[in-house]
């Protein structure tokens, strides 16, 4: 890849980062919402860098040949001056300049092993070829814009025994009220179910949002939400067993209203997901922040 190509790739890569973070909510399918400013800043840096490099290259002729040129420059200096003068004269008298010895052709892109000696060395054998791979995330970001993880990833990440919910320490602990619908996150619900001596879920109506994953049993299905620490590569599934209503279409997003089914035996250490007796299921659009 030559220098201009490299700059274009950098420009597009920066554009892809800005596109997924500043101009759409796509980024929330891949990383934590807090990453947004980082992504915008990194995209802006890439765009600025590529524009600056394009401008710089325009100034000094194409690309990395400059280093070789610099080495030659001293030897060629005198010749340069003469040629410049000749060209100037030629322009003055309005005719084609004679053969100009200083049209040092730009060397397109250094073949790694070639011509740059100690400067580029062995490290980049294949280095400029591997830069082509940067077009893959660009293409995926612009062409495919993959959605948030769904039921396939849940099955892939499933393990036995299941992990209990990570303990969350909240500044404002949730308070549930009787006589109204309490909107809870999946992690709040799971935490209250697993470790709440006060039993504050008992008798309360709660509403949870997630996507549908079949459980393999006829009388229940799994309402699921992925939880990520940093990016979708570290996603963990938070699941609630929903009973009492038929399973909607797999991977569709739903809001489920219902009441908690208390655990029968809390004596074993093995964790099982909490259960919910549903009274109402509404389809809903995938949220802008698909992960908890």
């Amino acid at each position: 890849m030559n220098r201009t190509g490299q700059n274009l790739v950098l420009l597009l890569l920066g554009g892809a980062l800005v596109k997924i973070s500043a101009f759409s909510a796509d980024f929330a399918n891949y990383v934590k919402p807090g990453f947004r400013p980082l992504l915008i800043a990194a995209g802006a840096v890439l765009v600025l860098l590529s524009v600056a490099a394009l401008a710089l290259d325009r100034h000094r002729g194409t690309g990395t040949a400059r280093r070789a040129d610099l080495r030659r420059a001293r030897a060629a200096e005198e010749e340069d001056a003469r040629a410049a003068e000749e060209r100037h004269l030629a322009l003055l008298v309005g005719r084609e300049p004679a053969a100009s010895p200083q049209t040092r052709a730009p060397e397109p892109e250094p073949e790694p092993e070639h011509g740059h000696g100690h400067e580029h060395g062995h490290e980049h054998r294949g280095g400029s070829r591997v830069a082509w791979l940067l077009t893959v995330p660009i293409a995926v970001a612009f062409l495919a814009a993959p959605p948030a993880l769904g039921s396939f990833a849940v099955r892939q990440a499933e393990q036995t025994p299941q992990a209990p919910p990570p303990v969350i320490v909240e500044a404002d602990p949730v308070t549930l009220e009787n006589g109204r619908v309490n909107d809870l996150s999946m992690i709040e619900f799971a935490n209250l179910d697993w470790d709440d001596p006060g039993g504050s879920l008992r008798g309360k109506t709660v509403r949870l949002t997630g996507f549908v994953v079949p459980s393999g049993r006829r009388d229940a299905w799994h309402l699921t939400r992925m939880r990520i620490g940093c990016c979708a590569a570290d996603a963990l599934a938070m699941q609630v067993v929903v009973r009492g209503v038929p399973a909607p279409e797999t991977d569709s997003w739903v809001r489920v209203t219902g009441t908690w089914i208390p655990r029968k035996n809390h004596t074993t250490d093995a964790y099982t997901p909490p259960e919910l007796a549903a009274s109402r299921v509404e389809r809903t659009a995938p949220p802008d922040e698909p992960y908890e």
């Binding site: 891949y30 992504l39 800043a41 893959v136 995330p137 995926v140 979708a232």
Partner: peptide, 12 residues
């Protein structure tokens, strides 16, 4: 999605 996630997380 996972590919984009690793890229988006690491690039900044």
């Amino acid at each position: 999605t996972v590919f984009m996630a690793v890229c988006a997380q690491a690039l900044p």
